[in-house]
């Protein structure tokens, strides 16, 4: 019985087109894949970019002022910072959700769906909040 199950070809839907057009990924699945995407973006290039800004802002007063009054005013830089804020908030909130799931909290389907919505909403709301301060 088990060998028959093992021989049956397993469906794999890892391609982007399959993910977007062939299957309907449930919301907790989207939280998971966005956790990976945001994590990868944070490692590269966002961490390098933030280190660059930390370096310039701490090096000298003129460097700090250049970052604050010029660099951070550029629309492309603001957009990048917004992406960073979203990635950080999403990774943070989704990570806390995964920690709670590890502790067997919220593993019922309804709660798992509700917490997925909460992760999406809270991280987008935090992004909007910090974004509003930025502009």
């Amino acid at each position: 019985m088990s060998s028959a199950a093992a021989k049956k070809p397993r469906p794999k839907y890892l391609s982007l087109s399959a993910l977007l057009f062939e299957i309907r990924l449930p919301l907790p699945g989207w939280i998971s894949i966005l956790h990976r995407i945001s994590g990868a973006l944070l490692v590269f290039p966002l961490a390098a970019w933030l280190l660059y800004m930390l370096d310039a802002s701490l090096a000298s007063e003129s460097g700090f002022e250049k970052i604050r009054t010029h660099y951070l005013q550029l629309p492309i830089v603001k957009a990048g910072l917004l992406l960073f804020i979203w990635a950080y908030c999403h990774h943070f909130c989704a990570g806390i959700r995964f920690l709670l799931l590890d502790l067997n909290k919220g593993i019922e389907l309804r709660q798992a769906r509700a917490s997925s919505v909460a992760v999406l909403v809270v991280s987008l709301a935090l992004t909007a909040l910090f974004g509003a301060r930025l502009w």
Binding site: F44, A47, A48, L51, L54, D55, L58, A59
Partner: peptide, 19 residues
């Protein structure tokens, strides 16, 4: 490449903090 990248982040951080 990932290990080199992460290693250079650490080096850079130390450089920034203890300048």
């Amino acid at each position: 490449f990932t290990l080199l990248l992460i290693g250079s982040y650490l080096g850079w951080t130390i450089q920034i903090l203890w300048r």
